[in-house]
């Protein structure tokens, strides 16, 4: 798989986590591809931290709702509100996030560990883009799912303990990569699904934390 195929594969698997009516926040990059793979009959309320509850499709220049100066997403790109959606101010919006009104958030990681700790906002001394809304989402969303490539150029991103400063502790419930699906449990990471292109040993070789294989290990591909 090339980069784009890997991302599409992960996004497709993430889409299976969602059910009709879920309120979902999607991080930048890969997570924004998830709505492309929703099963029929699953309609989401897309929550955007910049101030949309019920975001619509990305408008193109020339579309009636294309308004790059007044309706944008958290990346500053043109956005839209879905039919029935609404705009909201930041204080109220983050009240919704912290208050547990968002069913799921999908976000990427620099590092994630077996305790569900997540690091994705700073590499000290190198890059400090900031956490934006990520800390609030990790703490507040009912279900926090990391979706990412399993490694960074072959190096592990999944550890026993994160080394980088955390975004939030004990927040991640599930990790979805192009290799497998890992659930974060009290006993550590449990592999519940695997991409049949890989063996369990291949996954373990690029994961820096112990993995328990579920008894009924399934294929990530139906």
């Amino acid at each position: 798989m090339d980069k784009n195929e890997i991302k599409a594969f992960i996004a497709k698997r993430c889409a299976k986590e969602l059910k009709d009516g879920d309120v979902v926040n999607l991080g930048i990059g890969l997570p924004t591809m998830i709505p492309n793979y929703l099963p029929e009959g699953v309609d989401l309320v897309i929550h955007a931290e910049l101030g949309i509850v019920g975001a619509g499709a990305t408008p193109k220049e020339g579309d009636a709702n294309y308004d790059p100066y007044h309706v944008v997403d958290a990346g500053g790109n043109p956005a839209s509100v879905a039919f029935g959606g609404g705009f909201i101010d930041s204080a109220t919006n983050f009240g919704l996030i912290r208050g547990g009104h968002v069913d799921a958030c999908f976000l990427g990681a620099l590092e994630v560990d077996q305790e569900g700790n997540l690091a994705n906002w700073i590499i000290p001394g190198k890059r400090m883009p900031g956490m934006g809304g990520a800390m609030d989402l990790c703490v507040g969303a009912k279900n926090c799912i990391v979706c990412m490539e399993h490694t960074a150029k072959g190096n592990p991103k999944i550890f026993e303990k994160c080394r980088l400063p955390l975004t939030a502790s004990h927040c991640v419930k599930k990790i979805i990569t192009e290799m497998c699906v890992l659930e974060v449990t009290e006993k550590g990471l449990v592999m519940t699904e695997i991409n049949p292109e890989f063996t369990v040993d291949q996954v373990k070789a690029v994961t820096a934390a112990p993995i328990t294989v579920a008894e009924n290990l399934k294929s990530m591909i139906d």
Binding site: I52, H70, V71, V72, F87, S90, A91
Partner: peptide, 8 residues
Amino acid sequence: YKGTMRNF
């Protein structure tokens, strides 16, 4: 405020 201008 129009659209997402409200924010902060």
